[in-house]
Each structure stands twice: as structure tokens, then as C-alpha cells.
């Protein structure tokens, strides 16, 4: 955990965010700040809005028909939904890892080069270096360094998910969003990914369905319920001394 050297710089700031899918009010007045080098976990029952909120941060909800947004989301002071902001540009700076590993049906190497190639990196040497760096950062290099030409589809689930992490890291993102990244993985693979999250030093926002996981890996935790942010604070405090009854009910499993 990066708690000791947290610099208290706000990277992501949400102000009074309301979000609608058509008539459905998915997020209600959510305001929260996420700090640099910290792991922020978002927990809550399914349908509570945590994934929706995560996807707002890199504009992955743009394609949902009838999606409406009110309020502001700022990344390093820049509005994510400002008139001049470019969703493609934002997604290059804010990486994302999904619920199920979703490597492309290409080689490991080409998977990782996908992002850099999009921004125009063509030189073989440069790409080689980026691939190695990303795979090392995702703690996968030693396992796959001799298999780079192999299809990423041939790897195990845990390795696939780390290829996806490496693929996101190859763009050197400022922030990494993770949407239940271990829900499709077995316990051993989960442990590897969790270990990576704890030691990466990146600014990470992670949605998880698993409270123990949030407690293990995050610096701060946000509890969502029915579209509202019920409680947000240091993970240790939230799990040991929740301020809200709803939070307490949820983390103790007494939930109706």
C-alpha cells in the first residue's frame, strides 16, 4: 500500500455527478476526490452504480444510448466532459482493465503494442522496449518472454488478465481503472493480480464485488448504494469504524 508516501494530490475529482440511463437515475449527486498513487476501491451491491461511475471516468458510457450526465468530473483539473475534451485522448491517459480478461485474438506482443501503435509508435526497437517494460510492470515478463509471438488467447485466465493490464500500461496511463478485474479468475491468479495492484504505485480506481479484496488492497474505499455514495474514507476506518449504518450493515453482511 502506498499510504505512507501519498502526496495528497487530487487526480480525479467528481462534483455532484448525476447520471441517467434514459429514465433510470443511476448516480445521484456523487462527489469524491481520488488521490495520486493511491488505490481507491469502490464497493456496494450489484446495480449500486459503482461500475457506471468507473466508466464515466474514461468516457466508456458515451456509447450508451440515452445516457445523460450532470455535474463535473475533473482529471488533474481538466474537465472530462468539457466541450473541448476528446474521449479518445482521455482513454489514452486513463487505462482500463475489464471484468473478464479480453485480450485480442492476436499475439501477446501485438496485444501490448496495440495502444502504442495507435499513437503512432512504429519503430521495432521502441516497441520491443515498451513491451518488455509493460510486461515487467504487470509482473508477467518472466512467464511469457519466450512466448511473445504466441496468441494471447492461449494463456491462462490470470495471465490473460495480466496481458490486459500490460496492454493498458503500455500507454503509460496516468490512472488505471479496474472493473472487478479478478471476478473471472481463480484464487491463485487473483492473488497475483492483487499483489500487482498493491505494489504498482499507480493511481488506481478499482471496482470490486469482494469486500475482503477492497480491504486488502486499497487505501481508500467508497461504498455505493442505490446510486448514492454513502460513505468514502480511509479503508481501515471504513471497515473498522463505519460512520453510516448502511455501510456497517453491508460490510457485516447484514444486508436487506
Amino acid at each position: 500500500m502506498a499510504e505512507q508516501n501519498a502526496t495528497e494530490t487530487v487526480v480525479i475529482s467528481a462534483r455532484d455527478v448525476d447520471f441517467f440511463y434514459g429514465e433510470f437515475h443511476a448516480l445521484k449527486g456523487v462527489s469524491m476526490d481520488m488521490l495520486e498513487h493511491e488505490v481507491t476501491a469502490m464497493i456496494g451491491p450489484s446495480g449500486c452504480g459503482k461500475s457506471t461511475f468507473l466508466k464515466l471516468l474514461n468516457r466508456m458510457n458515451d456509447f450508451v444510448p440515452g445516457a445523460r450526465l450532470a455535474g463535473d468530473i475533473l482529471i488533474r483539473g481538466e474537465p472530462v466532459y468539457g466541450p473541448d475534451s476528446d474521449p479518445v485522448d482521455i482513454r489514452r491517459k486513463v487505462g482500463m482493465v475489464f471484468q473478464r480478461p479480453n485480450p485480442f485474438p492476436k499475439s501477446i506482443y501485438d496485444n501490448i503494442c496495440y495502444g502504442p501503435r495507435l499513437v503512432g509508435v512504429r519503430a521495432k526497437q521502441e516497441l520491443d522496449a515498451l513491451v518488455e517494460k509493460a510486461l515487467r510492470a504487470a509482473a508477467l515478463w518472466d512467464e511469457v518472454k519466450d512466448l511473445l509471438g504466441k496468441s494471447a488467447m492461449d494463456l491462462s485466465g490470470g495471465q490473460q488478465q495480466r496481458v490486459c493490464i500490460a496492454r493498458a500500461l503500455a500507454l503509460e496511463p496516468d490512472i488505471l481503472l479496474m472493473d472487478e478485474p479478478t471476478s473471472a479468475l481463480d484464487p491463485i491468479a487473483t492473488a497475483k493480480v492483487e499483489e500487482w495492484i498493491k505494489t504498482s504505485g499507480l493511481t488506481i480506481v478499482i471496482v470490486t464485488h469482494n469486500m475482503q479484496q477492497a480491504a486488502r488492497i486499497s487505501d481508500r474505499t467508497a461504498f455505493f448504494y442505490m446510486g448514492s455514495l454513502v460513505e468514502f474514507g480511509k479503508t481501515r476506518d471504513l471497515f473498522t469504524r463505519p460512520r453510516e449504518t448502511q455501510t456497517e450493515n453491508y460490510i457485516t453482511g447484514r444486508f436487506g
Binding site: D18, F20, A67, R68, L69
Partner: peptide, 12 residues
């Protein structure tokens, strides 16, 4: 109170 507000998200 729940009426949709805000702006439609349009992928630019």
C-alpha cells in the same frame, strides 16, 4: 425529483 437532468452524452 428523479427526472433526467444534465446533458446527453454524445460521442464526439
Amino acid at each position: 425529483a428523479d427526472a433526467p437532468r444534465g446533458e446527453l452524452l454524445h460521442p464526439k
